[in-house]
Design a binder for these strands. Structure first.
Length: 605
RNA sequence: GCCCACAUAGCUCAGUAGGUAGAGCACAUUCUUGGUAAGAAUGAGGUCACCGGUUCGAGUCCGGUUGUGGGCUCCA
């Protein structure tokens, strides 16, 4: 699936540089490992990669690249670049291509795909049969559509770097051979490379797992608790409380009604919903008691459906917007767990909309705008929207798919945000809109999802009585806007780099008395600020002021109030911001006004 | 689940050719009362992830297990 992360590189020159760098790397690898089989080596966002099959050693273990190999390969690449060998393109027949690559089984498979049409040399789908072309430089030949730079010297020797080795399946299929992939990054000049490496560094500093520990926000304990299960510490818990409080308030104002449902349900529920057929491998094993099997819920939908079904519904009741902060458990494969962003137990800001067909377009508009407003409140500015349309295997009437896709598309157009369409990428039970936000480092994250469900209304036989006195099938729309509290928190931590906006900062003000003589004054000011609703701590340790400031800085507390003899005499506070800025001495009332503004505007200083 | 790498104090890491463990920070006690990012002393903290093997002897070498990290696959 194409997320924005994997999108093609649009800059023509960068594309050529990266693609050419991949070829040069393949040449260097072949020289060092003559028996290596080449797979594919495309340019990607920020760089390129190439997949190789190095075969197996005597013990049958896959041969791999060592860090020394990478160094040697990179060194050899620079020599090839210095050689300024021209890239020469030639169109060949399928037969000739097969002869050229007779020792390269993966290339032969690609040639077959090109000949038959339908896929290009990277295995990506294309229209019709493709022209088969090869590119040659310095004796190295690769099956390739191009384009490339004119000669190897045009790949800047000081603007690329091999980053790491990873395993990757041939054609992304876990049943096919595991290949060794070398990732590299390549840019037009040294400055760009440096900027990119800096961005990687910055991303590392903002890693929510690192900040989560440093700021004492959350932890996991794989030995005692289990992987993918999050322990929210007091400071993280407070932020979550504030996030939820704000979002829930918006939901109430937006016409949602809150419900609560259990964490487990009988197997018949999950049989009826179909989850035991198509989702079982992601569910925790059943709990058996009194001869009944109960499953931990992986989703809230079936429970909400039961609430809908608890009485006869009239068209006058619709739309129903049923919301729940629902905690679900999904058995994710061990290798995919990652900090807060991929976990096994999480709480969705879940809701289900039940509406009549004529209400549906309006409901879509409404929920899309609601989502964007909510995300904007958390400091996200840039949105990329994706519509995923009907896949080949699907349930539901064509007319409903038509109407739903149409409504989603129209809502996207009206939203005013950039959007794209992923043809055939919808779930089998309905089309959907996914909203990606761009964070402070311009990385995309998927948060909101708005999905039609044509499956559950049928399976549970949902109806409402229309004005004609007849039973009708309602539309059911599933939506999670923040996604999950865990994931959203992880993204938020990285977006702000731990510098939460004042309204979310667990501690908003740290009061720093310089000597014990100001302690009483410090506690008095703290009391005054607390009464105004602020979260305040007094650092009354016997550290020096410098150390207290440093600690408050490291805790990323927005405001520090330094109180010495001068402030005590003048009945003032001396304000320092966490960005190092010093606002000087002012009356407590003036400071409060300052904070009030930051709170209202939800700004991060 | 698959490929690779890694696993030493709460955290970040050292541990040189195998000879029964170190630093900084954090923590505790004491001294220090100091104007915008670290004042000082002392102390407490580890069966070197776990199991097995080689060896007179294993944090160090070998195998396995578990976990973590980077990827792949998956992500209703």
């Amino acid at each position: 699936m194409a997320s924005p992360n994997q999108k093609q590189v649009y800059d023509e020159q960068l594309y050529k540089i990266r693609h050419s760098a991949a070829h040069i790397m393949a040449q260097a690898v072949l020289e060092r490992f003559p028996e290596a089989k080449l797979a594919i080596g495309p340019p990607i966002k920020d760089g390129f990669y190439y997949d190789f099959d190095l075969g197996r050693d005597e013990e049958g273990k896959l041969k791999t690249f060592s860090p020394e190999d990478l160094e040697a390969i990179e060194k050899r690449m620079r020599q090839i670049i210095a050689g300024r060998y021209p890239f020469e393109r030639r169109v060949v027949s399928a037969a000739e291509a097969r002869e050229l690559f007779k020792d390269q089984p993966y290339k032969l498979e690609l040639i077959e795909g090109l000949e038959k049409g339908g896929t290009d040399e990277h295995g990506e789908p294309i229209e019709g049969p493709a022209e088969i072309s090869i590119y040659k430089h310095d004796g190295f030949i690769d099956l390739c559509r191009g384009p490339h730079v004119e000669h190897t010297g045009q790949v800047p020797a000081d603007a690329f770097k091999l980053l790491h080795v990873a395993g990757a399946y041939w054609r992304g299929d876990e049943n096919r051979p595991m290949l060794q992939r070398i990732y590299g990054t390549a840019w037009k000049n040294k400055k760009q490379l440096k900027a990119y490496l800096n961005r990687l560094e910055e991303a590392k500093k903002r890693d929510h797992r690192k900040l989560g520990r440093e700021l004492d926000l959350f932890s996991t304990n794989h030995e005692m608790v289990g992987g993918g299960l999050i322990l929210w510490h007091p400071k993280g818990g407070l932020i979550r409380y504030l996030m939820e409080e704000h979002a829930k308030k918006m939901h109430l104002e937006g016409g949602y009604e809150f419900v609560y449902t259990p964490h487990i349900g009988r197997s018949v529920l999950w049989e009826t919903s179909g989850h035991l057929d198509f989702y079982k491998e992601n569910m925790y094993a059943p709990i058996e008691i009194d001869g009944q099997e109960y499953y931990l819920k992986p989703m809230n939908c079936p429970f909400h459906v039961q609430i809908y079904k608890s009485r006869v519904r009239s068209y006058r009741d619709l739309p129903i917007r049923m919301a729940e902060w629902g905690t679900v458990y999904r058995y994710e494969r061990s290798g995919v767990l990652h900090g807060l962003t991929r976990v096994r137990g999480f709480t969705q800001d879940d809701a289900h909309l039940f509406c009549a067909p004529e209400q549906m377009p309006q409901e879509i508009d409404r929920v899309l705008n609601f989502s964007i407003r909510l995300l904007q409140d958390f400091g996200f500015q840039d949105f990329q929207l994706y519509l995923s349309t009907r896949p080949e295997k699907r349930v539901g009437e064509e007319a409903k798919w038509d109407a739903a896709e149409d409504a989603l598309l129209e809502a996207l157009k009206r939203s005013g945000h950039p959007y794209d369409i992923h043809e055939g990428d919808g779930a089998f039970y309905g089309p959907k809109i996914d909203i990606y936000v761009t964070d402070a480092l311009e990385r995309p994250w998927q948060l909101s999802t708005i999905q039609f469900d044509f499956n559950l209304p049928e399976r549970f036989d949902l109806t409402y009585i229309g004005s004609d006195g007849q039973a009708h099938r309602p539309y059911m729309i599933h939506r999670a806007l923040m996604g999950s509290m865990e994931r959203f928190f992880g993204v938020l931590i990285e977006h702000y780099g731990g510098n939460f906006p004042v309204w979310l900062a667990p501690v908003q003000v740290k009061i720093i008395p310089i000597t014990d003589a100001q302690k009483d004054y410090a506690f008095a000011v703290a009391e005054q600020l607390r009464n105004a609703g602020l979260r305040v701590e007094v650092d009354d340790s016997d550290s020096r002021m410098n150390a207290k400031i440093r600690n408050a800085q490291l805790e990323k507390i927005p405001y520090m109030l330094v109180l010495g003899a001068k402030e005590l005499d003048a009945n003032q506070v001396n304000v320092r911001l966490r960005n190092g800025q010093r606002l000087g001495a002012m009356a407590v009332e003036d400071f409060l006004a300052l904070v009030q503004e930051a709170l209202e505007k939800k700004i991060a200083i």
